[in-house]
């Protein structure tokens, strides 16, 4: 069988479905993050779901196909930004003359989307950190995939010579 031009990609069906689902998974992830304080779920769970979108692309397009589209440097910055946001939201309590992490913002009616003060904001911060963190993690770990393919190719060429 002739090797295709891009051996790291899966078949066209997988790639198309991955493209179609990418946005949907992102939206579902965001939904889980934003509704973290009133439904099961929250920042971590939603963040992992969001990162799954990137992981799916990685599976369909391979390491070489994804690193050109997803900038890991930017994702790393996002991760730090999420942590700083979480830290700052904790500090709001101190500034409002209570203690660190105190919930001093508008509480609203329990069960509604805009309620529970800083908790949904913290969920968003955690979601940001987890989504970008897990995505970066998997991208970096899949460098191994890229290397092993490179070695295999080099070995094969060496054998042919």
């Amino acid at each position: 069988m002739k090797m295709s031009e891009k051996p790291y990609e899966l078949s066209v069906i997988v790639r198309t479905v991955a493209r179609l689902l990418f946005g949907l998974i992102l939206i579902f992830g965001f939904y889980v993050i934003v509704h973290g304080h009133i439904t099961p779920g929250g920042g971590f769970q939603g963040g992992v779901v969001t990162a799954l979108a990137v992981i799916m692309l990685l599976a369909a397009y391979g390491y070489e196909g994804v690193v050109t589209e997803v900038r890991e440097k930017i994702l790393e910055r996002f991760e730090s930004l999420g942590a700083i946001m979480f830290w700052t939201l904790g500090l709001v309590g101190v500034i409002a003359t209570a203690t660190y992490f105190a919930d001093v913002l508008y509480k609203g009616t329990p069960g509604e989307l805009i309620s529970a003060g800083t908790i949904p904001l913290m969920n968003i911060a955690v979601g940001m950190k987890v989504a970008s963190g897990v995505a970066v993690l998997v991208i970096i770990m899949s460098i191994g995939m890229y290397y092993s393919r490179k070695y295999q190719k080099a070995e094969k060429e060496g054998a042919e010579e």
Binding site: V134, L137, I140, M141, I143, G144, Y147
Partner: peptide, 17 residues
């Protein structure tokens, strides 16, 4: 546990190299 596992697998990749 996720963080530890990720760390462990990353180091395992290096061990294999």
């Amino acid at each position: 546990g996720l963080a530890t596992l990720a760390m462990a697998l990353s180091i395992t990749v290096q061990v294999y190299r």
